[in-house]
């Protein structure tokens, strides 16, 4: 746990907190994008370099851009003012959060120490594309194809549902 790791962890927590608590949706989305970039940096520090770049390119660069695009398109930056539809949920959510945190602490307290990041990452051989390629396309090929099919189904479903005219329910 070097100083850099602590610093990054603190920044991750801060941006995550801001992403949830900022009132302006565009600011919150930008905090989330910063969070994703920091996660990419963490991946790179853990020697999973390819994954780190992909995290930045795909998450912060494409997904968050489109997210903010939708917010801007719908002028949805300011939250709508109105009554909370589920008033009893906040204390319940807080309770679940506390219980979950305690459970995780108990689980990690009893676990044996993980491999040092460097040693574990050595197995990744620097996390370059050359190292990941055989893993994705040979060892875990069917899992990758399954995920791809899932994404395809989701895309087609989204387009079909939102198609104007005689398409499915709007």
């Amino acid at each position: 746990m070097s100083l850099l790791d602590l610093f990054l962890g603190a920044l991750l927590l801060l941006t995550g907190f801001l992403a949830v608590r900022l009132k302006n949706a565009v600011h919150a989305a930008l905090a989330l994008a910063a969070n994703f970039i920091l996660v990419g940096v963490v991946y790179m520090l853990l020697e999973a370099r390819f994954l780190g770049w992909i995290q930045i390119i795909v998450y912060a660069g494409a997904i968050m851009v489109l997210f903010v695009f939708v917010i801007m398109l719908l002028y949805a930056a300011q939250a709508e003012v109105g009554a909370d539809p589920l008033p009893g949920l906040k204390p319940l959510a807080a309770a679940v959060g506390v219980v979950g945190f305690l459970a995780l602490t108990y689980a990690f307290a009893g676990a044996k120490a993980p491999l040092a990041a460097k040693a574990a990452s050595a197995a990744l051989a620097g996390g370059t594309a050359e190292a990941l390629g055989p893993l994705i396309w040979q060892t875990w090929l069917y899992a990758v194809l399954l995920v791809a099919a899932l994404l395809l189904v989701a895309t087609v479903a989204a387009v079909t549902i939102l198609r104007p005219g005689e398409g499915g329910g709007r």
């Binding site: 390819f50 770049w53 390119i57 912060a60 660069g61 494409a62 851009v65």
Partner: peptide, 14 residues
């Protein structure tokens, strides 16, 4: 950078 091409993408998107 080992993955210079990815760096270029990341920067263009940002």
């Amino acid at each position: 950078i080992d993955m210079g091409v990815l760096y270029v993408f990341a920067v263009s998107e940002l």
